[in-house]
Amino acid sequence: MESVKKTGWNLMEEVRRLPLFDECPTPCHWVVMNIIAWNCRGALKPEFRNHVRELVQNHNPAMLIVMETRVSGDRAKEITDRLPFDEAIHTKTIGFAGGLWLLWNTDRVAVSLLATTEQEIHVSVKVRPSDTQCFLSAVYASPKFNERCILWKNLVNVASLHSSPWIIAGDFNKVLADNDKFGGRTVNANRSLLFKDCLDSCNMVDLGFSGPRFTWSNCRGIRRLIQERLDRFFVNPDWCTLYPNARVSHLTHVHSDHCPVLLDFEPSADSSLNKPFKFQSF
């Protein structure tokens, strides 16, 4: 495979291997199924493993997406082997930057890897014991504009190659609208529009959220404070049909300047949620 930085990415062969999905799968609603996405800002810190265990104890995720790990290869495997998950997929870092992991427990989901790049992990997911299936794309968008544009192009290519229930989750390193940011420079409307166009081409919707509005903060005093909503879950209408009550929650900041974000497939009845987000027109 040629370098994704230079040529982008074609998933045709990988997506052709995607298992066939039931036309009208019936989810098993009593199954506890949720996913957490968290930019940990480095997985080598001693407290990282403790915070992952706390997240598992408090929220019982079947899958965990970890971004900006800054670790890959054998060292990454050594760390994930000590975490409370059975299996893991790791991407390569870019020098000492980046790093994307997907972890899961095999008694709750069956995961088939389709392909990876430095910014993406694409898998098919079967939820046990219902055998409900979906397509999951975990992403860590590059802070660099040109590389991020490659990611947008890749996701659009993926959308053209399948018609399955689909989740895209991770740190997108870009806000969609002015109210996704507090402080600092004004939002670059043209770059946000490229992000929005990608999501529209993928037929993605934002489920809204509960908890604090922003998922990242520079943690500085009020005069220099910058906060943004960078970490998100997007789903397509087919996925919404399977899980119409799904909820997204911004959890408490730990260890990192990004908060973990939880997607709960079947939340309790008393869960509160902000209204679904409508993309801003430019």
Rank of each mutant, 00 (worst) to 15 (best):
H255K: 08
N203T: 10
S164L: 05
N245K: 13
S217P: 03
L207C: 12
F172C: 03
R220N: 06
Q119N: 04
V261Y: 00
S272T: 15
L176A: 11
I79M: 07
Q133N: 08
V123R: 03
Q119T: 02
Y140M: 07
D171G: 06
L242H: 07
N105R: 10
F234E: 00
E120P: 02
E87Q: 11
S281T: 14
K126D: 11
N190F: 11
P237Q: 13
L113E: 15
P19M: 09
L83C: 09
A169F: 08
T91D: 14
T241W: 10
A269Y: 11
G8Q: 09
C134L: 15
E2D: 10
V32M: 11
E14G: 10
L151A: 07
V127L: 12
N173I: 07
R82W: 05
L273Y: 03
A246D: 05
K5W: 09
I167T: 05
K181I: 02
L102C: 09
L100W: 01
L263Q: 04
S72H: 06
I226E: 12
V111C: 08
D22Q: 12
K174R: 12
T215H: 02
R232Y: 01
N188P: 02
I167V: 15
W216Y: 03
N236K: 06
P165Y: 06
K181V: 00
A269C: 12
L262R: 03
C202Y: 01
W166P: 00
R191L: 14
L225C: 09
I150P: 00
E87K: 05
N274S: 15
H122I: 09
P267Q: 10
F209E: 01
V109K: 01
F195T: 01
L207M: 13
V32C: 13
V4H: 04
Q133C: 07
L194P: 01
T241N: 06
K6D: 11
